[in-house]
Design a protein around this nucleic acid. Sequence first.
DNA 1: TAGATTGTTAATCGATTAACAATC
DNA 2: TAGATTGTTAATCGATTAACAATC
Lengths: 217, 217
Amino acid sequence: MKRLSRPVIERLPRYYHYLRELTNSHNGETVSSHQLAEMMGIDDTLVRRDLAAISVRGQPKVGYPAGEALRTIRHVLGLDERKRAILVGAGRLGGAIASYRGFGDFGLEIVAVFDRAAGQVGPELGGVPVHPTEGIEDFLAERPVDFAILTLPAEAAQVMADRLFAAGVRGLWNFAPVALEAPEGTIIRNELLSSGLAEISYRLAQGNLLRDAEDFS
Amino acid sequence: MKRLSRPVIERLPRYYHYLRELTNSHNGETVSSHQLAEMMGIDDTLVRRDLAAISVRGQPKVGYPAGEALRTIRHVLGLDERKRAILVGAGRLGGAIASYRGFGDFGLEIVAVFDRAAGQVGPELGGVPVHPTEGIEDFLAERPVDFAILTLPAEAAQVMADRLFAAGVRGLWNFAPVALEAPEGTIIRNELLSSGLAEISYRLAQGNLLRDAEDFS
DNA sequence: TAGATTGTTAATCGATTAACAATC
DNA sequence: TAGATTGTTAATCGATTAACAATC
């Protein structure tokens, strides 16, 4: 398969979301590009183009097979592969992520939590064992992971990121409110939640309260 | 000022972030488009274009005034205006957001937290008073807010969103893992955290570990 | 068959980048 | 002045949408 463009990659989880809704409400054997387009707030040509890009074929006059589309998206995004991760920083946000069960559907398995003050956190967080930060390197040497989730304060984030990459971590899902640098050959996704707040602020300030198709991100 | 395009709006918080770093490390009186471009991982022409769009003028041979650029972005994004919000859903994620102080720099003031089981949460969360959900309408009638932050489970989210909009809320910052519908004339931003996970999953699956300028979102 | 819907090519649109003149 | 950097116009690039033929 050709490498997908960024816009397509960003739409796939949304297709996935809506297709799941459709297939749950058992009237969802097939779905037309028009239906999906309406749910997504985009043009139906774009839906057909996206589905073609991941080789989901429809039938004229009938539509697309919803279940197959769902499975294909799962596969293309790699959601059907287990991804082992550690979480660093057992603050409130870290606790929320460690406890949230929904990521399991996306193949995520958090195998350990690390915190400077592990003792104060307790032996487990969201059912995951908590260890002191010092032990990260040893842990990773024995049990490598696919990526790390970073939920530390801004000040501590870059240092920890460097440490993690040095210890062989290949990817980082960063929730610290700072844009982190990653070395060549690794992947990083910075979730700057304040960007969302900035957008809301801008739109409120503009008095631009009209909702458009782009409200989903 | 002309209405800004979505890509520009998404870059402004990042400029803001880097400009703040620069001005903190006191060698930051002026900054060149080249410097900013490097930090952002984008072309320097784009930086000049963006700054021009918000009427920040530079001086040939010198660069752009960092402090002024910072203030202008604050103003354009409306970060210098106080935004009053309520937070609905005092789970772990809600607690993390209510407790996080950094949003204050963006003008956010969370004035109340609501939860179905307010009694179990306690009288305060992150220093904000906690009330039972039943009281939302009365509260908003007396003390209107600019928007609401939603940190509920997926099942409860749409019903609560409808309730909030009916009670006159004009904007919604939604962290529930579901894309919510908003009525005409209101704004909504859905933070689907699982989209970030999907992207990481895809990139790991592709073995595409090369970091590019797009790693920031 | 007629009608609906897919699949794809061509046109459009918008954002980014290249080129370069203006300017301090 | 010479050189560096801005500001802007033109070119390019990529994504979306329009048009429409193919097809069940």
